[in-house]
Design a protein around this nucleic acid. Structure first.
Lengths: 204, 204
DNA sequence: GCGCTATCTTGACAGCGTCTAGATTTATCT
DNA sequence: AGATAAATCTAGACGCTGTCAAGATAGCGC
């Protein structure tokens, strides 16, 4: 931490930290910019100088979220076997990891219109996350999805199955269905892996 | 329309209609109870007598949404071949139809904490929608998901792929990937059907 | 017809995002 | 170094929000 001068010094990053804490505490639907300012120890008007408005702050936070999403995917891939399919499944498990650990941030990123999608940081980070998925599928199929429609279809399918699992999971809608049989954490992962494989392990 | 007495007569249903119109116009994230009241032509305090508060109104609206979701699925199934797999795919296409036609209502139902999930109407309607999916899978596998964990796994997989497609679609995230090759409406449906079949058409 | 209850209006309150004006600190330029 | 400019933060105001309380009005059962 740089010395806390009067002119706060690093208010922007402190606001981002405070914003995420507020997000975790109260959820995106009762997010309050004034509460963020209070948490950071500044007046309610201060954030405007670093982020134009509440949208600006949430846009920046979402962009950070996409970078952390990719990091979570990379982390899973490091512990997985190196064959392309195993890597793609691990990438998907990382996506689910991220959603489980940051459900409100995940919703901000994917189910909210608050973030300004044309923002450079946001678009760049979100685009990088998408390109990561494209790379995973390219490795599996040995075909470039950007030029091969069949490969891009596989991208869509893979994204949908992983995103669907993640979204239903954080909304608690898989609690009951997944409560059958073995309810251990590892078993759930096995189930998710098997489901992802159904989508990935196809030739057509 | 019943005669418009002073004591409005059917304010509850009018408020629901107005609420959905507001939802379509402004989206869930800037939903305003006062705006709903104004649209229905009553004072801002009136809704409280029919729905406890904003949550109550949105809970009732979401419950209606689940019934309409099932109706959209049924509609698709009527036009589809009668074999169980074709019926299940049609059911999924109906799910996507509903999301495309009612994106904000869909988000209220699946990506919002506003609806009170313990509400009887909500839980009943949402449960019926889930049981419809269970029935679709039961017909495909000839096994009861409620007693057969493997069948329930298929339920989870099917829900996830359909829900993932729907959610990514309404957030505009499939616009670019689906813009390759044939961009016609029917082709998109074909792609979605093929993707669903990848998940459904499995023995394990 | 009278009371009771449901329904609706009105006003108040605190909290919200944003705008503006002013104070204060830091940076820049000569 | 001293003055001027720029960046940063505070404080107050505005109209909006959801909810609560009090009072008015209409319909219903007796």
């Amino acid at each position: 931490m740089p010395p806390k001068t009067y002119h706060h010094g690093n208010l922007a990053s402190e606001l981002l930290k405070a914003a995420e804490e507020e997000l975790v505490m109260n959820g995106i639907e009762s997010f309050s910019l004034r509460a963020v300012a209070k948490r950071a120890g500044v007046s309610h008007g201060a954030p405007a100088h670093h982020f134009r408005d509440a949208r600006g702050l949430l846009t920046a936070l979402a962009a950070i979220g996409y970078r952390r999403l990719v990091a979570a995917q990379n982390s899973r891939q490091r512990d997985a076997k190196s064959d392309p399919t195993a890597q793609a499944v691990a990438s998907g498990l990382g996506y689910i990891d991220f959603a489980k650990r940051n459900p409100e941030l995940f919703r901000l990123m994917f189910s909210s219109e608050k973030p300004e999608r044309t923002d450079e940081q946001f678009a760049g980070a979100a685009g990088a996350a998408f390109e990561k998925l494209v790379g995973n599928i390219q490795d599996v199929l040995d075909a470039d999805p950007h030029t091969d429609p069949a490969a891009m279809k596989q991208v869509v399918a893979s994204w949908a199955i992983v995103h669907g699992l993640a979204d239903l999971l954080i909304s608690g809608r898989l609690n009951a269905p997944m409560a059958m049989g073995d309810t251990s954490e590892v078993h759930h992962e096995t189930v998710f892996s098997e489901i992802m494989l159904r989508v990935l392990d196809r030739e057509d």
